[in-house]
């Protein structure tokens, strides 16, 4: 591709180092994209801004909410009672869906899935991992959650109840992991740094601490 061609074809993939896919379905997607841009339905600038916004969301958002709840009992109570409003209270932009935060305890472990598609709290956790969208995870986490969790390195004793939450377009979930011991007096920033994406999904249970 020459620079000249590039300038004349604004709907083209922007960076030349991004290889275009060659599968039929992906080509269909690119064709659709170029048609919509050329028809003026949206601009390349809008596309770039949207991609930047999507890339900007990360599990750090969810981690901040968790750290806030760990250090503020009143907030934690509000978060568990009405997740959507408590999350908006901290300035996070949630699409207009219900949001429920499920608390892990010594005897309860929560894990989330979307069996029908891929619903995921993207504004709080960023892009979902590929496995979250995979058929094997979606099929089996509701059938044999302990076995699936073991594949993630989470080995639950019989005394711990597993609760699997199936997300929908209107209702999303996030897990509130247990605060690690040995973190008394830690700042919210220090605590947030312990919280991982997988712990917010529920495919990780133990978080670092002490050090």
């Amino acid at each position: 591709m020459t620079d000249n061609e590039h300038e004349h074809d604004h709907a083209r993939t922007f960076q030349p180092d991004h290889v275009e896919p060659t599968s039929e379905a992906a080509r269909l997607g690119l064709a659709l994209r170029e048609l919509l841009i050329e028809a003026g339905h949206y601009s390349v600038d809008e596309e770039q801004a949207m991609i930047a916004a999507m890339q900007g969301a990360s599990p750090e958002n969810g981690a901040k909410i968790v750290a806030h709840a760990w250090t503020n009992d009143d907030y934690k109570a509000r978060l568990l009672d009405d997740g959507a409003n408590a999350i908006r209270e901290l300035g996070f932009d949630l699409e207009p869906y219900e949001f429920t935060v499920m608390e892990n305890t010594k005897t309860v472990h929560n894990v989330i899935v979307c069996t029908l598609c891929s619903c995921y709290p993207r504004s709080l956790l960023g892009m979902s991992p590929a496995w979250y969208k995979s058929s094997n995870y979606r099929a089996r986490i509701v059938r044999e959650p302990r076995a699936v969790l073991a594949e993630f390195g989470v080995n639950l004793s019989d005394g711990v109840e597993v609760r699997v939450h199936d997300s929908t377009a209107e209702l999303r979930y996030m897990v509130l992991p247990e605060r690690p011991t040995g973190t008394d007096g830690w700042s919210q920033e220090q605590l947030a740094a312990l919280v991982t994406r997988d712990s917010l999904i529920g495919t990780q249970r133990e978080l670092g601490g002490d050090k």
Partner: peptide, 18 residues
């Protein structure tokens, strides 16, 4: 949901630009 399946592939995957 509830079907059988193989092990979950835990590999992380970054979106391609397209």
């Amino acid at each position: 949901g509830g079907r059988t399946g193989g092990p979950v592939d835990l590999a992380e995957h970054d979106n391609a630009y397209w």
